[in-house]
């Protein structure tokens, strides 16, 4: 402690409790009930976080668990049911992919996909060529 610390310390004021303080205090203490030890009693510090955690779990179960587990049980042993659902599902594809019930429709679907892929590749090549041409046109020679 330096001189300044001592100066602060010296500012302490002494005060003695009045006589009979202990007796008066004990008289008041006897009018109250002592706090009993309670590890898991009604203690908000324990139960409030626990309740909040439980609420989060319940919320997650209600809103995020897949519908299938809430009663729409899928019987994988009966493929015809799922096929029926798949057929009724709307799709944006111009050529609906066959469900594979016959070879002819499967081959047709495969051809359509291959045609689409090759067309895409052709378009990409055409685009690349155009870009290269444009790059050559705008290049400025530097000295």
């Amino acid at each position: 402690m330096d001189e300044f610390d001592e100066r602060i310390k010296s500012a302490q004021q002494d005060y003695e409790p009045s006589p009979g303080f202990v007796d008066r205090t004990m008289e008041e203490v006897h009018k109250h009930k002592v706090g009993k030890s309670r590890r898991f009693g009604f203690n908000l510090k324990i139960w409030a976080p626990a309740a909040a955690g439980f609420a989060v779990v319940v919320f997650a179960m209600v809103f995020f668990v897949p519908k299938e587990t809430q009663g729409n049980v899928v019987d994988h042993a009966q493929p015809s049911t799922s096929k029926a659902v798949a057929k009724t599902r709307p799709t944006d594809s111009p050529t609906p992919i066959s469900d594979g019930t016959d070879d002819a429709s499967l081959a047709a679907a495969l051809d359509a996909v291959q045609t689409s892929v090759s067309q895409s590749a052709s378009d990409q090549a055409s685009t690349d060529t155009t870009i290269n041409d444009q790059t050559q046109e705008i290049s400025v020679p530097t000295n």
């Binding site: 002592v34 706090g35 203690n43």
Partner: peptide, 16 residues
């Protein structure tokens, strides 16, 4: 204040 503190500590002794 000291008296009140002793009483409060007594009442909350279970949380000590």
């Amino acid at each position: 204040l000291a008296q009140e503190a002793f009483i409060k500590a007594y009442e909350k002794l279970g949380q000590y």
